[in-house]
Simulated scan of single mutants.
Amino acid sequence: MGKKSRTAVLDKPAVTGDVPVVGLREPCPCGSGKRYKQCHGRAAKAEAAKLVTRPFEGLTGECDWVAMREIVPAATATVTLTQEYGGREVTIVTLLPMAWPAIHRADGAVLAALQTQGGSGDPSRDVAAAILRALETEAGQPVPEAGLPGPGPRLQDILEAQPFEVQMQTGFEFWFDDPDGLDEAAKASLQQANDTAMPSRRLRSVEAAYWVDVNGRRHLRWVLPDDETQVLDGIARLHAAGGSGIVEGSRYVGSFRADGVVVPVWDVDATTEADDLEEPMAAFEKKLRTAMKKTTPLTDAERRAKAGMLNRQLTLR
């Protein structure tokens, strides 16, 4: 897993290799006489800002990593660090209070969030940096936002290869080791957070498909690792033939790109529950895979369908 990921990281500038990170206004350790931010700090910042278009590629369950970062309001998953980095378990979560990158809970558990503010051009590096900082943080303390992390290991470098099993949560009780023991103020804050969490379910019949209820409007969002052109061509072929819906009352409404993969979206009827989609989604996946394998040019109707789809496409990152 780790070896594949390293090819995705842009080469590090040689000038930053042996120069320690210091405060931006401090003299650069290289001895140039310039402030760090005007010397090697500038190169380090530029390196951190470089965009990795598919940051979770090479991780087991890449599409679920993307879903937890972009779609799911409340969920957790357990990962294990390699022996080089301590070999302990870490809980990956969607969100932490105050958008903290990570927290070292009082019970010793380390939680690292995917939905944070700011960050570099490589979310994999950001989360890995937050995990490593949390390991050095006193138990009971959060890991605050610290700006761009600079060069360093990525998730693909620090995690063991193992199944990435998303555990959907109805609220954010996982923030605390003892949610029942909170004082009234903390309970009120937790309830406020829980009230904002959209009901969501992960389907079992296909990988990385999520039913989401947004204020009474229900959607299916399906994160796919396949080539985007093949996915959209396949859906266009089905759409032109009147077969792009999943169940009665569903409608394909477009797609968005997130972390280098494509996420088709369907509206479903307000009475459709996640369980109602299990068998139809398994059947739809077979139809889509068959359509994606076709190599004949799109027909006029299929091209028009695809053009309409592209007009409704967004890029989140």
Score class of each variant (00 low, 15 high):
residue 304 R to C: 04
residue 274 A to N: 03
residue 303 R to W: 00
residue 254 G to C: 05
residue 286 K to V: 15
residue 272 T to Y: 00
residue 260 G to A: 08
residue 273 E to M: 04
residue 283 A to F: 04
residue 301 A to D: 15
residue 304 R to D: 13
residue 298 L to F: 01
residue 288 L to Q: 13
residue 281 M to P: 05
residue 248 E to N: 11
residue 271 T to Q: 13
residue 303 R to V: 09
residue 264 P to K: 10
residue 298 L to W: 03
residue 284 F to P: 02
residue 283 A to W: 03
residue 295 T to C: 04
residue 280 P to T: 10
residue 260 G to F: 02
residue 286 K to F: 01
residue 270 A to G: 05
residue 291 A to Q: 10
residue 288 L to V: 14
residue 247 V to N: 08
residue 272 T to C: 04
residue 280 P to Q: 13
residue 259 D to Q: 15
residue 248 E to D: 09
residue 291 A to I: 06
residue 301 A to S: 15
residue 249 G to V: 03
residue 303 R to I: 05
residue 273 E to K: 10
residue 289 R to S: 12
residue 297 P to D: 07
residue 277 L to I: 06
residue 255 S to N: 14
residue 247 V to L: 07
residue 293 K to L: 08
residue 304 R to Y: 01
residue 264 P to A: 10
residue 274 A to C: 02
residue 300 D to K: 09
residue 262 V to M: 07
residue 285 E to H: 13
residue 286 K to P: 02
residue 254 G to H: 04
residue 270 A to S: 15
residue 280 P to L: 10
residue 265 V to C: 09
residue 251 R to T: 12
residue 261 V to I: 12
residue 267 D to C: 05
residue 280 P to C: 11
residue 278 E to M: 03
residue 257 R to P: 01
residue 255 S to V: 05
residue 249 G to Q: 10
residue 295 T to W: 02
residue 251 R to A: 11
residue 261 V to H: 03
residue 269 D to F: 00
residue 251 R to Q: 11
residue 285 E to K: 15
residue 255 S to P: 03
residue 291 A to L: 08
residue 296 T to Q: 11
residue 293 K to D: 14
residue 256 F to C: 09
residue 293 K to V: 00
residue 278 E to D: 06
residue 282 A to E: 13
residue 275 D to F: 01
residue 300 D to F: 02
residue 283 A to T: 09
residue 259 D to K: 13
residue 272 T to F: 00
residue 293 K to P: 00
residue 258 A to E: 10
residue 283 A to D: 12
residue 288 L to K: 14
residue 257 R to A: 06
residue 270 A to F: 02
residue 247 V to E: 04
residue 247 V to P: 02
residue 261 V to A: 07
residue 297 P to W: 03
residue 261 V to L: 06
residue 264 P to T: 10
residue 250 S to M: 07
residue 252 Y to L: 09
residue 253 V to Q: 12
residue 254 G to V: 04
residue 293 K to S: 12
residue 300 D to S: 09
residue 282 A to H: 09
residue 268 V to W: 02
residue 283 A to E: 13
residue 283 A to G: 08
residue 279 E to R: 14
residue 263 V to F: 04
residue 267 D to P: 01
residue 302 E to D: 05
residue 260 G to R: 10
residue 266 W to Y: 04
residue 276 D to Y: 00
